[in-house]
Simulated assay, not measured.
Amino acid sequence: MIKRLALLLTALSASPAFGWGHQAHSAIDRAAIAALPADGPIFLRAYSDYIAASSTIPDGWRNASEPFSKIEEDPNHGWFRERFAFLKPLPRSRYAFLLALYRENQRLLHSDPASAAWINVRWTGTLPFAIMEQYGHLVADMRQLRTARANGEAQNAKFLEQICAFDVIRLGHYVGDGSQPLHDTMNSDGWRGLNPHGYTADGSIHARFETAYVKLIDLTEGDVRQHMAPRSHEEGDLFDAVLSYLNAAGDHMETVYQLDKRGSFSRQSDPDARALVYATTAAGASMLRDMIARAWSESQAIDANLANPLDPQTPGYDPTTGSAPAKVDPN
């Protein structure tokens, strides 16, 4: 038993840090749900405690003790954008993205094996794909909820509300992770590569910022709501909006290292560190609110003219993935 425990602790210590700690994830989710518009899925407010209490459930799927789960889930929490700067435009398909990484890995394997070692799904992440896939689940389940209500199926509708609440837990976790700047960079767990400013290479910076400091300032739902942006993302291509959102969060990455270097995360009163936490968590709550509200709107009907991405006759169909990429939403 002692040996097994030691092995487990070793495995956990070798794993990359998780997303925002529970306090921040919970505050982001609560703020987003409280800020839903009156014509949105306000039934979710009845599940606010459940969603907030379960906000870090997806992190529990990343333990080495469940290897199949960890292999599938781990990349969904990161987006190390420096690693795939070669890839333009970004594929609108998880599988096309993975194949592009594989081809680049193979291209570099002999000429630059050190770089090739980082060009794989684990060290690039798949966060925007996880966000969009879970968003699709939420739209589909909300559509079923609407149907159950229309058919007078009260008990089934109640169950579907609970399913939608769980969808929000997962979507909220991925969106929340994306608002944490260290989830959008290869420097997620300590500075890598050239380091002229002498930033820490210690992986503990991740937890020092997102968990210890959040607890130190006692971040609340009210703090997050106070800094949320007005509603947006009601139209236009949502995948592009998600990418822009992740890029904006990642642009704060060096600020995290600068604040850490001057010891800001050990001082409750540091105004710049507080401002960064407020701004990033509020951005996450704003994005989550907008995506939940848009999902509810999109669940009203299905466009019968949409092409099936699995149909070989669909334009852009790729036989290596067995699908066509998601189309750009013009609305």
Rank of each mutant, 00 (worst) to 15 (best):
M1H: 11
M1V: 09
I2T: 07
I2R: 06
A6S: 03
L9Y: 04
P16Y: 01
F18V: 05
G21Y: 01
Q23A: 14
A27W: 09
A27E: 10
A27H: 11
I28R: 06
R30E: 15
A35W: 08
A38W: 10
D39F: 09
P41E: 07
L44D: 00
D49M: 08
S55C: 14
T56F: 08
I57A: 07
D59P: 00
G60Y: 13
N63C: 12
P67A: 09
F68D: 12
S69T: 11
E73F: 13
P75A: 11
N76E: 11
F86E: 14
K88P: 00
P89A: 00
L90K: 14
A96H: 06
A96T: 07
A100M: 04
A100P: 02
Y102N: 15
N105M: 11
Q106N: 11
Q106P: 00
R107T: 15
L109M: 12
D112Q: 07
P113H: 04
S115Q: 13
A116H: 00
W118Q: 14
W118E: 14
R122T: 09
T124S: 10
G125P: 12
T126H: 02
I131R: 06
M142S: 02
A148I: 08
R149C: 07
N151M: 14
G152P: 04
A154C: 03
N156Q: 15
A157V: 07
F159P: 02
Q162K: 13
I163Y: 07
V168R: 00
I169H: 01
G172L: 03
H173R: 00
G176L: 04
D177A: 05
S179A: 12
S179G: 08
Q180K: 09
Q180N: 09
Q180A: 08
S188Y: 05
W191N: 06
N195F: 12
P196V: 05
H197A: 09
A201F: 07
D202R: 14
S204Q: 14
S204D: 13
I205T: 10
I205N: 11
R208H: 14
T211F: 01
K215Y: 01
L219W: 02
E221N: 12
Q226V: 01
Q226T: 07
M228F: 01
P230G: 01
S232Q: 04
E234N: 13
G236F: 05
D237Y: 11
A241D: 09
S244H: 12
A248I: 02
G250K: 04
D251S: 09
T255D: 10
L259V: 05
G263L: 00
S264R: 01
F265E: 08
F265K: 05
S266G: 12
R267G: 04
D270P: 03
D272E: 15
R274P: 03
T280W: 02
T281S: 12
A283P: 01
A293M: 05
A295W: 03
A295H: 04
S297E: 14
E298S: 08
I302F: 03
N305A: 10
N308A: 10
P309R: 06
L310S: 11
T314G: 02
P315E: 01
Y317G: 03
D318E: 07
T320P: 00
G322C: 10
G322R: 06
A324Y: 02
A326G: 12
P330W: 09
